[in-house]
Amino acid sequence: MTDYAEEQRNELEAIESIYPDSFTVLSDEPISFTVTVTSDADENGEIVEATLKFTYVEKYPDEPPLWEIHSQENLEEVDGEDILTLLQQQAEENLGMVMIFTLVTAVQEKLNEIVDLMKNRREEEKQRKEAEAEEAEKVLFQGTVVTIENFMTWKAKFELEMAELRRKEQKEEEQGGKIKLTGKQLFETDHNLDTSDIQFLEETGNNVEVDESLFQDIEDLDLDEDDPDFDPLDMGSDED
């Protein structure tokens, strides 16, 4: 008949001697203890760690012990789930034999794999960022490649913007009275312009001073006002 209690005590002493710094007894009835498992450090000194809690059942090792992850460091949730699955597989393969050392060793290897995966993920992320930066620099240097599609899209947008701009300018001119009229349009809209000079003289009382010296020699000029080609503006040209 198997003495389960004896086998459990013997294994407990062995585990304590193998892991003196990471082994802690939590209770004697039932026997419960923890073993802290730490991965090897990577080149940056980063580690992952899991503290496993084991509890012996009455018929251990013919029945698997109870286990759980008591605490952890740098482990993601999916990693914890993988460790629990690994413990279940190892326990099923080692039924009938004391297995705590085997279980702890399997978890130790798993943690080292996780550290390697973390290293690979960091390296992949670094390469991805470098590739993105290189591509961004290339696009900045080359500019946008013009195709028929993006040119037509730009052209349609540009024409809409210009039409909207012209509409706004026209509206502002209409609202602000900024429409410029030609001379003809001014006379057509205000018939008083042709008599404005006369009105000005009347309003000022004809008090317009005239420099008579400007007209002293006008009688000496040979003016032929009957000449159809006569142009008083060209009078000065005959003196040359």
Rank of each mutant, 00 (worst) to 15 (best):
165 L>Q: 14
190 D>Q: 12
220 D>V: 00
160 L>E: 15
204 T>V: 07
190 D>M: 07
210 V>L: 11
160 L>T: 14
217 D>S: 04
172 E>A: 07
232 P>T: 07
235 M>S: 09
194 D>E: 11
164 E>N: 13
218 I>R: 05
160 L>N: 15
216 Q>R: 00
179 I>Y: 02
166 R>L: 11
152 M>D: 15
193 L>V: 10
170 Q>E: 12
231 D>K: 02
190 D>A: 10
235 M>T: 07
193 L>C: 05
153 T>I: 07
172 E>W: 09
191 H>I: 12
204 T>D: 07
197 D>H: 04
214 L>D: 02
204 T>L: 02
149 E>S: 10
147 T>Y: 08
160 L>S: 14
198 I>K: 03
153 T>G: 09
214 L>N: 04
225 E>P: 01
231 D>H: 03
223 L>K: 01
174 E>D: 15
205 G>L: 03
198 I>F: 08
168 K>H: 13
233 L>T: 07
229 D>A: 09
232 P>E: 13
158 F>R: 13
194 D>S: 11
166 R>G: 08
216 Q>E: 12
195 T>R: 06
236 G>Q: 14
222 D>M: 01
230 F>V: 05
202 E>T: 00
227 D>I: 00
151 F>V: 01
211 D>I: 03
152 M>H: 11
228 P>F: 01
185 Q>C: 00
234 D>H: 09
227 D>L: 00
148 I>Q: 14
180 K>P: 11
213 S>D: 15
193 L>W: 03
215 F>Q: 04
184 K>H: 04
174 E>W: 03
155 K>A: 13
229 D>E: 10
235 M>P: 04
184 K>C: 00
185 Q>N: 01
154 W>L: 11
187 F>N: 14
201 L>D: 06
153 T>M: 07
150 N>V: 09
183 G>E: 13
169 E>K: 03
215 F>A: 08
152 M>C: 13
230 F>M: 08
200 F>R: 00
200 F>W: 03
157 K>H: 11
169 E>M: 09
236 G>N: 14
209 E>F: 10
156 A>G: 13
149 E>N: 05
